[in-house]
C-alpha cells in the first residue's frame, strides 16, 4: 500500500471574502427585481384608500380583486373604456399568425440552407447576418410606406406581418446553425432513401427539432408579446396590442392615478410570457445546451 492509494477527504470549503462579496452582489441583484415585483403585487390587491396612506410595503388590509377586474373590463385607453381585454385579444391575434409564419418560414429556410446544396448560400447567409443587426427604427418609415401600399396599414395583419419579416433573419440563422450540426451522413442517407425535400423535412428533420423549437418559441412569444414600438407604429384605432393599451392607461394625465389598477394591468400584460416561461422553461435550458453539444 502506498500513499497514493489513500483517499483523503476533500477539505471543506471555507467561506472566503470573495464568496461573501459574490453572495452580497447576487442578493442585491435579486432584490433589484424582487422588491418592485412585491410592491407591484401587493398594490394591485389594495384599495385606493390604503394606497393613499403611503406605506407601500405593507400588505393589503383588505385583499380585493377590484383593481384586476377594473383593469380587465373597464379601464380606459384613450377614449375607449372597455379595459385591457381588447388589447389582449389584439395581441393574441397578432401573436398566433406571426409566430406560426415566422417559425415555419425560417425553419424551412434554415433547413434548406444547412442541408441542401443551395446556390449562393454563402452570400445569402452573409446578407441575413447583416439584416439581423439592422435596427428596426432605420427601416421603420419604408416599412410603413410598404404596408400602406399593401393596404394593410393600421390592422393587426400589418403588425403580424412586420413581426414576421423582422424575425426572419435571426430565426433563419438560428435554425440553420442548429441543422448544420446534424451529421452530414444522416442527410446523405435520407437523400438516398427518399430524395424528397419535404418528406425528409417532415419525417426526419422536424422530429429532431424539438429542442430548438422550444428556444425559438420562447424567444418569439416574449419578443412579440412584449413589443411596443411595432404595435404603436403599425396599429390603428382598436387594433393596437395589449402593451400599447397598458401604456395609454398608465400615462393618463387627468384625474387621480389609480395605482392599484395600473399595477394589476401591468401584471395582466406580463402573465402570458410568464406562463410560457414556466411551462417551457425546463426545455429551454435543454434546448440551449443541445445547440452547443449534439447528443
Amino acid at each position: 500500500m502506498t500513499d497514493t492509494n489513500v483517499m483523503y477527504p476533500r477539505k471543506p470549503k471555507r467561506i472566503t471574502g470573495r464568496s461573501i462579496a459574490v453572495l452580497v452582489f447576487l442578493s442585491m441583484a435579486a432584490m433589484f427585481f424582487c422588491v418592485p415585483l412585491y410592491v407591484l403585487i401587493v398594490t394591485s390587491f389594495k384599495e385606493m384608500d390604503q394606497i393613499r396612506e403611503g406605506a407601500m410595503f405593507s400588505l393589503p388590509t383588505k385583499w380585493t380583486l377590484e383593481a384586476w377586474h377594473f383593469a380587465w373590463f373597464e379601464a380606459c385607453s384613450g377614449l375607449n373604456c372597455s379595459g385591457l381585454r381588447a388589447g389582449f385579444w389584439n395581441s393574441v391575434v397578432i401573436l398566433v399568425p406571426s409566430l406560426t409564419a415566422s417559425i415555419a418560414l425560417s425553419m424551412v429556410t434554415g433547413y434548406a440552407l444547412a442541408l441542401w446544396d443551395v446556390k449562393w448560400a454563402g452570400p445569402f447567409l452573409f446578407v441575413l447576418f447583416l439584416c439581423a443587426f439592422v435596427p428596426f427604427q432605420i427601416i421603420m418609415y419604408p416599412l410603413i410606406r410598404l404596408t400602406v401600399t399593401m393596404g394593410i396599414y393600421g390592422s393587426t395583419t400589418a403588425i403580424a406581418f412586420v413581426h414576421t419579416v423582422l424575425a426572419m433573419p435571426i430565426l433563419t440563422l438560428i435554425f440553420r446553425n442548429f441543422y448544420k450540426d446534424i451529421p452530414p451522413e444522416l442527410i446523405k442517407a435520407a437523400i438516398m432513401d427518399s430524395g424528397s425535400f419535404w418528406r425528409i423535412f417532415v419525417e426526419i428533420i422536424l422530429p429532431m427539432s424539438g429542442n430548438i423549437l422550444i428556444v425559438v418559441l420562447i424567444l418569439q412569444i416574449t419578443s412579440i408579446w412584449n413589443d411596443y414600438l411595432i404595435g404603436v407604429t403599425f396599429g390603428g384605432l382598436g387594433t393596437k396590442p395589449m402593451t400599447v393599451h397598458l401604456a395609454n392607461m398608465v400615462t393618463v394625465s387627468t384625474g387621480t392615478v389609480s395605482y392599484n389598477v395600473n399595477m394589476a394591468a401591468a401584471l395582466l400584460t406580463a402573465i402570458p410570457p410568464l406562463v410560457i416561461y414556466f411551462v417551457l422553461g425546463k426545455f429551454f435550458v435543454q434546448g440551449i445546451a443541445a445547440g452547443a453539444i449534439k447528443g
Binding site: 442517407a189 438516398m192 432513401d193 427518399s194 419525417e203 426526419i204
Partner: peptide, 27 residues
C-alpha cells in the same frame, strides 16, 4: 437503384428500427 451503408450508421434518431427500415422504401 443503389443502397448505401454509412460509417456512422446514419440511422434516423427519432424513428424506431422499423421506421428506419420503412423510410428506406419511401422513395
Amino acid at each position: 437503384g443503389l443502397a448505401m451503408v454509412f460509417q456512422s450508421y446514419a440511422l434516423y434518431p427519432t424513428k424506431t428500427v422499423e421506421g428506419n427500415l420503412r423510410f428506406g422504401l419511401s422513395a
